[in-house]
Each structure stands twice: as structure tokens, then as C-alpha cells.
Design a binder for these strands. Structure first.
Length: 604
DNA sequence: GCCGTTTTCGGCCCGACTGTTTTCAGTCG
């Protein structure tokens, strides 16, 4: 039983209870399902080493759920779940994926029409059986059919690199409209998650109707799912959902905070507000709003104490400002509390506040770029000029090596020739008074046994050596890990490029023990790369966090294969910020001499 | 079902929108 298996059962138990109208329990199960899914280690291991008691220590897990997990681990089944399933034998995960369908409606559809799966749902809707049901109507039936169509066609999350340009384009269009005072991208996109479920855009306007009308009529809109006074939602032709919300000026900070999330982060802030006798919603932070007051209908007596900016909300809650990329409920609220109350009891604990994250624009160089010597599109000089235009002070040319024959990978001889070209180009820069530097490097293949594709003699002539896995993705975790660590122990190897080899949405990472890789990086002084190319984003945020904690240095590289690719560095910086990295953690945020000095020390 | 600077009982984040109703339930984020 993996964490995913356990989470699925717990989630469905919650959904079945919700179906029956049971209060509160559904939320308890759902919460634990999410926790288990996001857990670092396997619940099975937690149970094996610590027993029932250790399982109960997982946040949100009490005796009752712990026992159900124990039963799942021991027998692979849960009696409680089986009984619920027997009562309503439907394919929950399949039906829940239809937009607009939740547990209650799924329950009603089963009870009245015997619908148990997507196929039967489609048949019932097509036959016009749903619109006659109590609580459903013509529109519900159409929405269900449409939901099934969209589910079949696209579905799934979009990579950051796809969603962000689309969102920025929409912002540009809306910006031109009359009466629009301010626009901001919110949601998981503002947190720069590696994949985006939907785009949230916030707008201040005193005349929202024309903005809403324009928004739902944009040319790439395939379907309008909501069109109200303060909120509209559309689905674009490419399947991306976009929400637009209009908020009043005095509530802008509260709304931005609320719609940026994450959900768990918001819940934590609201709890904090309640503890202080305040109420937080998307309109502001209010005093005089305890739950009893709300029930007596006293909301009009509330006094707004913050809301215009995010900063004042965090401040009033007793927190230092938390950057959007950190708002994932992975300790940032506690850290912001500790920082805000340096003399408090909590301050004597372990951590000391929030880090000052690396900023967009902090990079001085790029340590992985390819040219037309191998599979890149442009010459060394064109790449250098593009890097200068992107505001960089140095790049490393890291073409592929001979094992990657399909890219015309460099052998020792051609590497030498390329070095001459780089020398000449540097001389040209020098003569023209430019301080820009092109460094010699390689994206050298790690061979099957963990040795390198180029000789040590060739590698030692280079300024920066990157090592990459491009073959044998199917080795066992043990073999792959040992292979990579052997490469890292080669004293000429400076950086491990795209350490897990994943391609988001296309190829899973190869099996590798990242804790062991990080430990080896610490031991050997090897830099681990954050490959910024949007379908890689490799390292992941959680790995970056571990590197920061271990004191392992990283680089943020474009992996540019053409002069137009340097803009992707932004995604890498976002990823680094999500991993709580600061400038001192990122070697190419340093001046070139300091960066090279660090690599030299590590080789020694 | 879980949890505790509301601590072993009594709460549990909060509001918008839709579609179905005629005051509200369900869904979503």
C-alpha cells in the first residue's frame, strides 16, 4: 500500500460520508488524505517502525483513522470503506472529475438512475433522463454533458511555462480597458507552481461590467462557466480555466492574499485571525466578528482593520510578509511568527524566521547553454549576445559530448576547437571594452558505469563541467544512485545537471535516491542544478529546500538551446524561491570569479 | 473525526455563483 493508495481510500470514505450528509467527518478524512499524499516518506514505513502510535502522530490522524490505516496496511482493505462502497457502488474518482458534480449529486444520480460510472452518466444525460430529476434541470444536464466532453478532450494541469505567458497576454488585453485601475495575476500562478490548474486574475475597477463582458467574449474563450458581478470564469480553447474577479480598492490586499492561496496557507491565516478575535476574508481583516456575533447577524458592526495591502494584513496578524512562492503551508507561517516575535517562547526554538529569497534579476550568469556545435540553434557568439541582452555577465557553453551521437556530441578534438573559438570571442569582448565572459564547459554524459564520456585530460581544461544522465533511465534506484554518485566523485565534475531527469507531463524522473545525492553533493562540493527549462524544472522545490538545509550549493540554468531561451531563467528563479533559496545558495547569482573560486575549491 | 494560548467538549475558513428553487443546496476555490 503506497501513500497514494491509502489517500485514495481515505478520500473516498470522506466523499461517501459527504454523500450521506454527515457533517465534519468528510473534512477530517479529506484533510488526512491530502496530508498522506504530500508526505515525504511512506506511511507503511512509519507504521513498521513506530506502530499505531506513530501513525497517530501524522497531523490530522486520530485513533479512528489510524486504525483504518493500520487495517489497510495489514490486509490491503478497509471494512468500513467496503461497506460504504457496497451501499453506493460508484466509480467515485471518475465521476468526481466531472466539473459541477460532487458527492451529493453523484449520490442522487445513483439512487434515482443507477449511474455508477462516466459511461452510464453520459448515457443518462444523452437520453434526457437527468433533467427530469428533482434538484436537476435542463441546464444541469447540459453542463454534465459538457463536463464529460472537456474531461475527455483536455484535462490536467498546464506547465507554468505555458500558463504564465497566456495569463500575461490576458492581463495585457484587459489593461487597455477603460475603468481598469489595477490588474494582478493571483492563484497558484502567482505562487509559480510548476503546473497550474487554473489562472486567477484580479482587477480593481469601479465599473466592472464592461470588463467582465469583454473577458467572457475574448476570441480564445471556448466556454463561459460563470459570468457574475464580481466573478467570471471561462475555459479557453486549449483547456485552460481562467477566473476573473473584480474587487474594491480598499479590499485589494485581502483579495490578492485570499486568491493567491494556497488554500492551507489561507486557512492558517484565518485561524490566526480568529485567535486574535478577528475575521479574515477576501474583503479584509475585521474586528468585532466572532462567530456568535455573526450568527446574531451583527456583521454590519464589523470594523475593517486591514485589507488594502497584503503587507498590512500579515503585519496585523503578527507575521512578517511572506512571499507568494512560499505560501504552501510548509512551515512559512510558523517561521513568520517566530520572526515577528523574536523574544517569544517560540523564538527560542530551532529556526529563525524567513529567509531573504533570491530575487528575479539576481542571476549574473548561466551555467548551461548549448550551441550549434551540437543540438543548439545558434552560434557561440549569438548566444553570448543574447545573454548580454538578458542582463547576464557570463555564460558557460556546455555542448553535449560524443556519446550523444544524435546531437553530434563533441569529442576531445572538437572540444579543443570550440575552445579556440571561445578564446577569440573573449578577446573580441575585451577589445571592445565589454566585461562579458564566455566560459568553457561541457554537458558531459555519465556513462553506464558512472565514468565520464570525456577524458580527465579534456575535462580539466574546462572552466565548468556539468554531468548529465541521458541514458539507462530504467536502472534500479540503487544502481542509478551509485552511478550518479560515482560521477559526482570525479574531481573534474562541478555540477550535476537536471538531477532527476524528469520531463513534466511526459517522462517521470528516473529512480534515484535524492537524499543520497544531496549527501554526496555535500561531501564532494558538487553543485546541483535547477534546470529552468519549463518542462524540466529539475530540481523540484522540495529538493531545493533540502539542499538549502544541507548547505548544498545550486545553480539556476536556462539549458538554452537557442538565443530566445534565456527568458526561462525566470522559471528557475521561481522554483528556487519555492525552495526557500537565497542568493548565497545559488552560485551563478555570484560574480564570476567567486563562482569559479568555489568550483576550484571543490575540485581541490 | 480531530483538536486544544477557547484544551477533553464544542467547535471546525468563508463567500460567490449556479441552478433550482421561491429561500436554498451543492459545488468550487
Amino acid at each position: 500500500m503506497t501513500n497514494g493508495d491509502i489517500a485514495k481510500v481515505l478520500r473516498e470514505i470522506g466523499e461517501y460520508l459527504d454523500m450521506q450528509g454527515v457533517p465534519f467527518k468528510p473534512r477530517a478524512y479529506e484533510k488526512v488524505a491530502e496530508t498522506v499524499e504530500a508526505l515525504d516518506g511512506e506511511v507503511a514505513d512509519v507504521y513498521r517502525t513506530g506502530g499505531l502510535k506513530a501513525v497517530e502522530d501524522i497531523p490530522g490522524v486520530g485513533l479512528s483513522i489510524a486504525e483504518k490505516i493500520e487495517e489497510l496496511l495489514k490486509t490491503g482493505k478497509s471494512k468500513y470503506y467496503e461497506e460504504l462502497k457496497k451501499k453506493t457502488p460508484v466509480n467515485l474518482s471518475e465521476l468526481m472529475a466531472v466539473e459541477g458534480l460532487g458527492p451529493r449529486k453523484i449520490g442522487a444520480l445513483y439512487k434515482k438512475l443507477g449511474v455508477t460510472n462516466l459511461r452510464e452518466l453520459e448515457a443518462a444525460a444523452s437520453a434526457g433522463k437527468i433533467k427530469t430529476l428533482e434538484g436537476f434541470g435542463e441546464k444541469s444536464e447540459q453542463n454534465i454533458l459538457q463536463g464529460i466532453t472537456f474531461l475527455k478532450s483536455s484535462g490536467g494541469r498546464k506547465p507554468l511555462g505555458v500558463a504564465l505567458p497566456i495569463a500575461r497576454d490576458i492581463v495585457q488585453r484587459l489593461k487597455g480597458l477603460k475603468g481598469v485601475e489595477r490588474l494582478e495575476i493571483a492563484g497558484s500562478l502567482r505562487r509559480r507552481k510548476e503546473t497550474i490548474g487554473d489562472v486567477d486574475i484580479l482587477v480593481i475597477s469601479d465599473n466592472p461590467k464592461p470588463v467582465m463582458d469583454y473577458f467572457v467574449a475574448m476570441p480564445n474563450v471556448a466556454n463561459v462557466t460563470a459570468h457574475g458581478d464580481t466573478k467570471s470564469a471561462v475555459k479557453l480553447a486549449n483547456g485552460l480555466d481562467v477566473d476573473l474577479r473584480v474587487v474594491p480598492k480598499e479590499s485589494y490586499g485581502a483579495a490578492l492574499n485570499y486568491f493567491t492561496g494556497s488554500k492551507d496557507h489561507n486557512v492558517a491565516l484565518r485561524r490566526l485571525a480568529i485567535k486574535k478575535g478577528l475575521k479574515l476574508n477576501e474583503y479584509g481583516l475585521f474586528r468585532g466578528a466572532d462567530s456568535r456575533g455573526l450568527k446574531r447577524g451583527l456583521t454590519q458592526k464589523e470594523i475593517m482593520v486591514a485589507g488594502k495591502t497584503e503587507e498590512e494584513i500579515y503585519d496585523t496578524l503578527g507575521l512578517t510578509y511572506i512571499e507568494p512562492e512560499m505560501r504552501e503551508m510548509t512551515g512559512e507561517v510558523e517561521a513568520a511568527l517566530r520572526q515577528a516575535m523574536p523574544t517569544g517562547r517560540q523564538a527560542q526554538g530551532r529556526a529563525n524566521g524567513l529567509p531573504k529569497l533570491i530575487n528575479y534579476g539576481d542571476l549574473q550568469g548561466d551555467l548551461q547553454t548549448q550551441t550549434n556545435w551540437t543540438d543548439g540553434a545558434d552560434s557561440v557568439e549569438v548566444m553570448a549576445d543574447a545573454a548580454i541582452a538578458a542582463g547576464l555577465h557570463y555564460i558557460v557553453i556546455t555542448d553535449h559530448t560524443k556519446r550523444l551521437a544524435m546531437t553530434n556530441g563533441l569529442n576531445e578534438q572538437r572540444l579543443l576547437e570550440q575552445g579556440k573559438e571561445i578564446n577569440a570571442l573573449n578577446k573580441k569582448f575585451q577589445v571592445s571594452g565589454s566585461t562579458f565572459r564566455v566560459l568553457k564547459g561541457s554537458e558531459c554524459d555519465i556513462l553506464a558505469d558512472g565514468t565520464m564520456d570525456l577524458s580527465d585530460e579534456a575535462l580539466q581544461t574546462l572552466d565548468v563541467v556539468g554531468a548529465s544522465v541521458h541514458s539507462l533511465f530504467n536502472l534500479s534506484k540503487k544502481e542509478q544512485t551509485a552511478r550518479i554518485i560515482r560521477a559526482m566523485r570525479n574531481k573534474h565534475v562541478d555540477i550535476l545537471f537536471h538531477p532527476t531527469g524528469r520531463l513534466i507531463g511526459k517522462r517521470p524522473p528516473y529512480e534515484v535516491d535524492m537524499d543520497a545525492i544531496i549527501a554526496a553533493a555535500k561531501e564532494t562540493g558538487t553543485v546541483l542544478e535547477i534546470d529552468a527549462f519549463p518542462d524540466r524544472l529539475d530540481l523540484k522545490d522540495e529538493h531545493i529546500r533540502k539542499c538549502v538545509e544541507a548547505g548544498v550549493k545550486m545553480s539556476i540554468d536556462s539549458d538554452a538551446h537557442s538565443a530566445t531561451h534565456f527568458h526561462v531563467l525566470e522559471y528557475g528563479i521561481a522554483q528556487a524561491r519555492r525552495g526557500w533559496a537565497t542568493k548565497k545558495d545559488i552560485v551563478n547569482a555570484w560574480p564570476v570569479e567567486k563562482m569559479l573560486g568555489m568550483l576550484k575549491d571543490a575540485r581541490a
